[in-house]
Amino acid sequence: MKPFTYERAKSSTAAAAAAARTPGAKFIAGGTNLLDLMKLQIETPAHLIDVNGLALDGIEPTPEGGLRIGALVRNTDLAADPRVRRDYGLLARALLAGASGQLRNRATTAGNLLQRTRCPYFYDTNMPCNKRQPGSGCAAIGGFSRQHAVVGVSDACIATHPSDMAVALRALDAIVETVRPDGSVRSIPIAEFYRLPGDTPHLETVIERGELITAVTLPRPLGGTHVYRKVRDRASYAFALVSVGAIIQNDGTGRVALGGVAHKPWRIEAAEVELPRGAKTVTARLLADAKPTHENAFKLKLAERTLGAVLTEARG
């Protein structure tokens, strides 16, 4: 690890201001992804702002009938919250499908959103990677790409976003609340939170320098049957090859988001009108612009079959 200075944040606004003011500063909360990357010198912050002491660890009802989840709520606590288990089963299921018990005890809501890709070429500092070192090239294109993205890819990057939680939040239309260094706040719909790689795969979200996530807000409960199905190489503690998060209503309508296929949780609202027609039609629409590699083209069929299994499960 590169040396860094350290401070404990006193308030959200002070933390945001300090992050904007201090060269090379980063926030640290759970640290389960950041420290991993710092050990490999993929992340080399000169200054860490520890936000764990901020009072952002509560889950409160909103006036609209939804829930406001503090940025520091640990993944375990979010998945175990009785309201989340009852009304947002998709979110609880997605959280529990991710990482290990030890990691979920530490990882936070905001940190989970901001975790970096697990592309092996991003992790290998001997390899070119446009995400790690802009302009250096992409070793995944033409490399071992079984795990990689099939849709929304660019010539610069085919990495996936690794989060399960974010897939559920995308299906739920969650809103990310932030505070900026000048103290102003904003609400970012999750649909607008992540970027596609394009020519700038190192820019992953719309978060600005110093901007701190303070909460994630869920809308009123949507009812329906909540299913999260994750297909992976091991039965537990592995990243998704493909995952499907769905909320299906009794009349067959619903919402679907995919994980493991793109640089962000993948949802196309227009595809959901096809849900009563079945998985094949929906998936064809969701992945119409897919550009898989020869190693990950199986994900197209896998996504269709996984959605098929999800719809069968939802119909009971």
Binding site: G31, L35, R106
Partner: peptide, 19 residues
């Protein structure tokens, strides 16, 4: 490296002591 912090198990390799 699993240890129990505040009653919860965590990976002690992925957390800074000063935290």
């Amino acid at each position: 490296c699993t240890v129990i912090v505040g009653g919860r198990r965590i990976n002690s390799c992925l957390t800074l002591a000063i935290m």
